[in-house]
Write a protein that binds this DNA or RNA. Structure first.
Lengths: 88, 88
DNA sequence: GACATGGTTCGAACATGATCGAACCATCAG
DNA sequence: CTGATGGTTCGATCATGTTCGAACCATGTC
């Protein structure tokens, strides 16, 4: 659902996450929220929204988690979207 | 603010409005909500969100209102965005 | 096994947005 | 002026999303 993706991206904190992950794969511990003092449950919540919208993949790795942007899938479903929001 | 635009578009009812207006300028009376039985106050609310996000222009015309998509402004600020969401 | 680290999940509190009816305002028709 | 049409605004209600702490789970370290 396009609206679901747009909603996920419409939160500044989540958009920032996507921008950080866009630089390549990133382990979650090195992915920082806009509000640095936010508890991890908040961070986890935003990750869930992004994951369920189909924006991020979140695979366990060691004792942490690896974040990857689902670029190909997104490009297939909504061509150009990622480029636009990353640039904007 | 990009996030504000994305949020405005993240509602199915509003996205549909944008798609209808994209076909050219449209007077509001001929712009139909997804839910046809919704009261006009609801319609007015969605229009306000779209207007304040900078997506639509809403000028009085006769006893009604004329809706126009702010294509040039949007293209200048967020190039490609409109094309992506209209296609998606 | 014991402990620290990194995340998830749950429930509660709070904030924000959607929806609706009612009242109101403007424009046009008679 | 009167009435009808098309929209806005307001306030209340309800639904949804955010935030947070606490409990919990998994992995790695000692």
């Amino acid at each position: 659902m396009l609206t679901e993706v747009l909603f996920a991206l419409s939160d500044p904190a989540r958009l920032e996450i996507v921008r950080q992950v866009a630089g390549g794969t990133l382990d979650m511990a090195n992915c920082h929220l806009l509000n640095p003092s936010a508890p991890k449950s908040t961070k986890s919540h935003h990750m869930k929204v992004l994951r369920e919208a189909g924006l991020l993949r979140n695979q366990p790795a060691g004792r942490g988690r690896l974040l990857t942007l689902r670029e190909e899938d997104l490009e297939a479903r909504f061509p150009g979207l990622l480029r636009v929001v990353l640039k904007g």
